[in-house]
Amino acid sequence: MKILAVGMNYVAHCQELHANENLPKEPVIFMKPDSALLKDSKPFFIPDFSRQVDYETELVVRINRLGKNIAERFAHRYYDAVTVGIDFTARDLQRRFREEGKPWELCKGFDNSAVIGDFVSVNKFKDIQNLKFHLDIDGNTVQQGNTADMLFKVDEIIAYVSRFFTLKIGDLLFTGTPVGVGPVSVGQHLQGYLEEEKLLDFYVR
């Protein structure tokens, strides 16, 4: 199982963190190892190597078929379920790595940095490109988005990444975060919602 993720996929988020950069012309792809996965409402422990770990709330898509060089018009056949996830980012490390022109897997792919909630069938929704999702921390909404605002749609991303990687059953695709990212601290209670259904629920330790 591999975890694929998309960076800079919402315009407002690009302006939030990368205001001096042009919008991407094609999906910005990075990966997380399987050891990054955190599920079943287990707590997230802030790592000791970072002073600022940010939440990034995202729609996560689960791959259900083996595929390579998938045409965009057929991409919808290759996933069966979605959920809300958190792409945790060691922001202080990311800033340093970017300034130094170095790879930044360490700030994105560390253990338990890919949190996922409960999956629900895509058949439950009329259009996954028009889904609202949001994150609450301690009962207050801190980030919200709509998949309609993606720069690169889910099917487009799947077609793109399958040119480079063979997609396998159980692979996960984090589809990018909207504006409103921010740091977490010990003791906080995070809850993620897709439409009005709570799918993600865990604590920061």
Rank of each mutant, 00 (worst) to 15 (best):
A5P: 08
M8S: 14
M8L: 15
N9T: 07
H13G: 01
C14A: 13
E21C: 09
P27H: 01
V28G: 00
F30R: 04
M31C: 09
P33L: 13
P33V: 13
D34S: 15
A36E: 03
A36W: 02
L37Y: 12
L37N: 08
L38Q: 12
F44D: 09
F45S: 15
F45T: 15
I46H: 05
D48V: 10
F49G: 00
S50K: 03
R51M: 01
Y55N: 02
E56H: 09
T57W: 07
E58D: 08
N64H: 08
G67L: 11
G67F: 10
A75W: 00
R77N: 14
Y78P: 02
D80Q: 12
D80L: 08
V82K: 02
T83Y: 05
V84P: 12
G85T: 00
I86A: 02
F88Y: 13
T89P: 13
T89E: 04
A90G: 07
D92V: 01
L93N: 00
Q94P: 03
F97R: 13
F97Q: 13
E100F: 07
E100Y: 06
K102D: 01
E105T: 12
K108I: 03
D111G: 10
A114L: 11
I116W: 08
I116S: 10
V120E: 10
K126R: 13
Q129A: 11
N130V: 09
L131S: 12
I137Y: 02
I137L: 06
V142I: 14
A148Q: 15
V154S: 04
I158Y: 01
Y160V: 03
S162F: 06
F165V: 06
T166V: 08
D171M: 10
T175R: 02
V179E: 14
V181D: 05
G182T: 07
V186W: 00
G187E: 03
G192A: 08
L194F: 10
E196H: 15
F202P: 00
Y203C: 13
